[in-house]
């Protein structure tokens, strides 16, 4: 530019001091070539430049879209997994509660059972004891009865041996009856 600013020669001075742009002799070829250059450039850009740009932009758009979709899908999946885990957790909790409840119930059952068996045993033991007491009483009564009979027989033998008369017998019987009446429980 420096050089061109310098180089004002006579040749250009002769061509006129106006703007070189208004020199009509250089118009035609510039019109032709600017249109030609434009369309050649257009053809080349359209053929070799625009398709790869559009391709890469579409690709990127597609990739972004697919990435977004994948992210959405994995989000949904994570959601599902989370729900699954929650469900499993809830199930486990329920199971644990159930187990605890069952254990509690079983323990209660065992306790009741134990109590019942204890009661039963106690009752049995009591009844056995009662029966034993009863039997002992019976045995004692029987023994007493036998003893009374023996005594009576002995007394009778002695009386018979003495050949007792009617008054004597009556007296003995009266005595016996009186004894019995005085203490009736002794015979029972």
């Amino acid at each position: 530019m420096i050089a061109s600013a310098y180089a004002a020669t006579a040749e250009h001075a002769a061509a006129g001091s106006g703007m070189p742009q208004f020199e009509p002799s250089v118009f035609q070829h510039q019109i032709v070539w600017s249109i030609a250059s434009f369309f050649v450039l257009l053809y080349l850009l359209k053929k070799y430049v625009l398709p790869p740009i559009e391709k890469i932009l579409d690709e990127r758009g597609g990739k972004i879209r697919s990435d977004l979709e994948a992210a959405e899908k994995s989000r949904l999946e994570a959601d599902k997994i989370r729900q699954d885990v929650q469900r499993q957790l809830a199930a486990a909790r329920r199971l644990a509660e159930q187990t605890v409840e069952e254990a509690r119930l079983e323990a209660a059952k065992y306790r009741d059972l134990a109590r019942e068996s204890l009661t039963q045993e106690l009752a049995k033991k009591k009844s056995v004891a009662l029966a034993e007491i009863d039997a002992a009483k019976r045995a004692a009564v029987a023994e007493l009865h036998d003893a009374v009979v023996d005594i009576a027989m002995l007394a009778t033998e002695k009386l018979i041996a003495k050949s007792m008369n009617k008054n004597d017998v009556s007296k003995v019987v009266q005595e016996a009856v009186t004894a019995i009446q005085a203490n009736p429980g002794k015979l029972q």
Partner: peptide, 29 residues
């Protein structure tokens, strides 16, 4: 001599003529 417009001069390097149309190659082209 000051000629700041000098570098706007179109210089034809090669003169071509195609069917009467001037298709010269200049510095502009």
């Amino acid at each position: 001599k000051m000629d700041p417009l000098h570098h706007f001069h179109v210089t034809k390097y090669l003169d071509f003529d195609y069917l009467g149309i001037d298709v010269a190659i200049s510095n502009s082209v």
